[in-house]
């Protein structure tokens, strides 16, 4: 144990744990902010998702109605042209607007709740932080990550459509390599994004990534903790759903608060 504690990433993890133990009220605030984040995200984005689906269904039924009338699936023109013909165009524009508003709503909710949680984590890590200054910086840094997330969503949509068409043509299940590749790229960008939060600097995030000897063990430790929790909760889920949610909230949310403090400790030490 003493030998382990000498390792830099373990020492910082233990230091973060001590700091979390010493700031119970800030940890509670962090937990409540996470609960608020998940609740608000669902509350604000579910109606938009439902509306988006409604518009897509209308487009689908209008297209199939036309196909029935003309006797051809897409007529002589492509799908994009069909989507912008006068009868369907308003719904297509609605889909694009709803898609954009979902990204904006996600961004706003993320900045308010996660920005406050990261500000609390900085204070737990004894890095005195003024909430309003931090939130403004958090909003600025996340503009880049938000745009990249939007690009990912669009590319993922294209990839899943392409995959679906390929499966329809070959009439068998095919592994979605492009979709998986995009998902892995998005996870890597997400991990880099986390590194930009301690100092609110994108340049520092990329500089930290290059320091692989420091960053890889930190993320490996976080991944191990995540996998262990995921395994335990999956086992519990077979027993009782309500109990799993309760235990999950009691264990996972403080661990998330600790993980933020750990990332701050480890990247600024």
């Amino acid at each position: 144990m003493i030998e382990l504690a000498r390792l830099h990433f373990i020492a910082n993890a233990l230091a973060a744990f001590e700091r979390v133990r010493a700031h119970a009220w800030l940890v509670l605030a962090s937990v409540l902010l996470d609960v608020g984040f998940f609740f608000s995200l669902g509350f604000f984005t579910t109606p938009i998702k439902d509306k988006l689906l409604e518009q897509v269904i209308v487009i689908g039924s209008l297209l199939s109605q036309q196909a029935k009338e003309t006797g051809r699936a897409l007529g002589n023109s492509g799908l994009l042209q069909q989507l912008f013909q006068p009868e369907i165009k308003p719904y297509t524009i609605n889909v694009l607007l709803l898609f954009l508003s979902m990204v904006v709503v996600t961004y706003v909710v993320y900045v308010i709740f996660q920005g406050s949680a990261w500000a609390a984590a900085r204070n737990i890590a004894s890095k005195k932080t003024v909430l309003r200054t931090y939130l403004l910086g958090f909003a600025r840094v996340n503009l880049l990550w938000g745009i990249l997330y939007l690009v990912y969503l669009v590319l993922d949509l294209i990839a899943s459509l392409r995959h679906r068409i390929i499966e329809l043509v070959v009439k068998t299940t095919v592994p979605d390599l492009l979709g998986t590749g995009l998902f892995i790229a998005a996870v890597i960008v997400g991990l880099i994004a986390l590194l930009s939060y301690p100092q609110l600097s994108i340049r520092n995030a990329f500089r930290s990534v290059l320091d692989v000897k420091r960053i890889i063990p930190m993320y490996a430790l976080l991944a191990v903790i995540y996998l262990v929790l995921d395994f335990l909760l999956t086992q519990l889920l077979q027993w009782s759903f309500e109990f799993t949610i309760l235990i999950g909230a009691i264990i996972v949310l403080p661990v998330m608060a600790w993980a933020r403090v750990y990332i701050i400790e480890h990247t600024s030490g």
Partner: peptide, 26 residues
């Protein structure tokens, strides 16, 4: 000021959500 801005933003989001049917009619 920050608190007021956050409350106004959340109210605007709520207003947007309750008016989705009017904004995007099907």
């Amino acid at each position: 000021v920050l608190l007021v801005v956050v409350v106004v933003v959340i109210l605007l989001l709520l207003l947007f959500i309750v008016n989705l049917d009017r904004l995007f009619p099907t």
